[in-house]
Amino acid sequence: MLFFLLAVIFTVMLYLIMRAYPRYQVDSFHAVVFNYYSCVLTGLVLTPDPAVFMEVRWTAEGTALTMALGAMFVTAFLLIGLTAQKVSVTATSLAGNMSLVIPVLFGLFVFRNNNKVFTGLNYLGLALALVALALGAIQRSREPAGAANTAGPKQTLWIFPILTFFASGTNNTLINFLSSRYYPAGQITVFMIIACLGAVVIGTSILVYRMVVHGHKLKFRSVLGGLILGVPNFLSLYFLLLALAAFGNSAAYVFPIYNILTMLVSALAAWVLYKERLNTLNKWGLLLAVAAIVLISYQELNL
């Protein structure tokens, strides 16, 4: 249970740290790039036997595809940061957790690797997840009263949670596919480090291009913000994997509870630290999200 709670805490820390970036004038893209340097270092520290990397075939198809996954890592993380900053931490958590619908649908209809028969209640849960996402995406702009931009920017805020939903879902689908196809169970940490190395290469290349061609300035605060972010980023996955192992690798049992707790703790932490308030539709979205996750996995929860 300790691993379970640590996974939730470090996941919520991700949203809260990225939400704080504008206050400290941290460039989100620069921070995301250096976040993956920190992820790689954290992963290496936690790897029991670094010699395992000597066995990696760096020219193999699986390794190349895993490195390419780094591009999706960077994209998804940028969208998470934008959603947390422009909309709310709760909306970010909701979009990220509801994105489980995408890998579930791919598992059912594309990969056909689902280990249970879906019932009408399970499909109802998937539908409710989409409704919950839509309700959670409706937010008020943080522009101060009397600001020049009016209905236009406020009406377009919903796009950030939607994009985060699709990016996170695609990311998780690719992680599930590549890790299960190319890596044995004991090499999940190796898989994540290789993917983060890909993110380092891709993100750094884009960053250097921006600095050389467009004259972007790299600030120490952005580098530091990214290095700080990378630790909970890697640890959130690390402890989630340990929690899965502790519960007999029952993903269908662990992920629903993990997602529910992450959403609820995110909403509470955002209210305490940033005074974020949910409107009526957001509250309904949060309740529907909990109901959706329960319905999707009610068999494993023994309900």
Rank of each mutant, 00 (worst) to 15 (best):
H216F: 15
I228M: 10
S180V: 00
N149K: 15
V213N: 09
Q139V: 12
L227N: 04
A185S: 13
K154W: 07
G152K: 10
Y238C: 04
L241V: 03
L237Q: 08
R210C: 06
A251V: 10
A245T: 07
S250C: 04
L235R: 11
Y123H: 14
H216I: 03
A129Q: 01
R142G: 09
H214A: 10
A147H: 15
A251Q: 12
V190H: 09
S205K: 01
H216M: 09
N249D: 14
A167L: 11
A147W: 15
L135S: 09
V223F: 12
T156W: 15
L197E: 15
V213E: 09
G186S: 14
L178H: 06
R221V: 06
L135A: 10
V231W: 05
L218A: 13
W158N: 00
P232N: 05
E143N: 13
L241P: 00
P232S: 06
T164D: 12
R140S: 15
L235K: 10
N172G: 08
R142V: 10
T156Q: 11
M211L: 05
K219R: 11
Y258G: 02
M192T: 11
E143F: 15
S180Q: 09
V231I: 11
P161A: 09
K154S: 13
V231Q: 04
G152D: 01
A132P: 00
A137Q: 12
